[in-house]
């Protein structure tokens, strides 16, 4: 039972207790500033009119669904290489948050697409890649739920996460290829370096706000996961106390 003796999770919980109020404060401030600028100071786009305001949530959500996968990949390396228990917790609690942000990116993307393209969904390269990413998040979450032992589930999910991380660039590349093959460039694109500062600033602030939101939720979810594992360990110990005959053998594998 070396897991808790290292006291890492305990120290981590104490750290969360200190950091979390500050993070929440900054997050709320950033959202207030970002939303104010998005609605009141940012100008209308000359092509897209007011729908450009959807961009201030769509782009940060899309950026976060990539960042969340990056966090999960780094955590998975931590699980497999250093066998750090917190890495496992981090990867597991990031998955639902990543799935939620991916969902947000998809929904806002298609709501933006309806006035722009005239349809809710086009099989655009980016939308399609994000849809694939959502399927991967949901698959990972399912894999975690179907395995009882958190350690084994963590390792399995870490392998799948890393294989996915290897595969995502290939998927992106092949979807791009497929898209240029089937669709001539008819999609309105707004990338390019010449975004006006009045649009860029609210976008950046919203990106910061979303990032802070991710870290707030991630830390809270990690705390829950640590508590859940404590409950699990204690329940197994309770079971072993009440049935001493089979105790010693069954209590061990949890951590």
């Amino acid at each position: 039972m070396a897991f808790w003796d290292y006291a890492n999770p305990t120290r981590f919980l104490r750290l969360v207790q200190v950091v979390l109020p500050w993070l929440i404060g900054f997050c709320v401030l950033a959202f207030a500033a970002g939303l104010y600028m998005a609605f009141f100071t940012a100008p209308e786009d000359y092509q897209q009119g007011n729908t450009v305001r959807i961009m201030y949530i769509h782009v940060p959500a899309a950026w976060l669904c990539m960042m969340c996968y990056t966090v999960m990949s780094i955590s998975s390396i931590g699980t497999l290489v250093w066998k750090h228990p917190l890495a496992d917790v981090s990867a597991k609690s990031a998955a639902p948050i990543g799935a939620a942000f991916t969902f947000m990116a998809l929904v806002t993307g298609s709501l933006w697409g309806k006035p722009m393209w005239g349809t809710y969904w086009v099989w655009d390269a980016r939308l399609t890649s994000v849809l694939v990413l959502l399927i991967m998040y949901l698959g990972l979450m399912t894999l975690w739920r179907t395995m009882d032992d958190p350690i084994k589930a963590g390792k399995s999910a870490a392998i799948l996460t890393l294989v996915g991380a290897l595969n995502l660039p290939i998927i992106k590349f092949s979807v791009d290829w497929w898209n240029t093959l089937h669709q001539p460039a008819s999609v309105v694109r707004m990338d390019g370096p010449t975004i006006h500062a009045d649009i860029l600033w609210p976008l950046l602030i919203m990106a910061v706000a979303f990032t802070l939101l991710f870290f707030v939720l991630h830390l809270m979810a990690m705390r829950n996961e640590i508590l859940r594992r404590r409950v699990r360990a204690l329940r197994m110990r309770a079971a072993s106390v009440s049935r001493p005959g089979t105790a010693a053998a069954t209590a061990q594998p949890a951590e």
Binding site: N50, I54, I57, A100, M104, L111, W112, P115, L217, A221
Partner: peptide, 28 residues
């Protein structure tokens, strides 16, 4: 605050995002 002809889409996307965040917070 004028949102123009596509106000419905803008409000819907913001509302859905807020809803998703609220669900996440509630879950946590």
């Amino acid at each position: 605050m004028e949102l123009g002809t596509h106000a419905g889409f803008i409000i819907a996307s913001y509302a859905l995002c807020i809803l998703t965040v609220l669900v996440l917070v509630a879950w946590v």
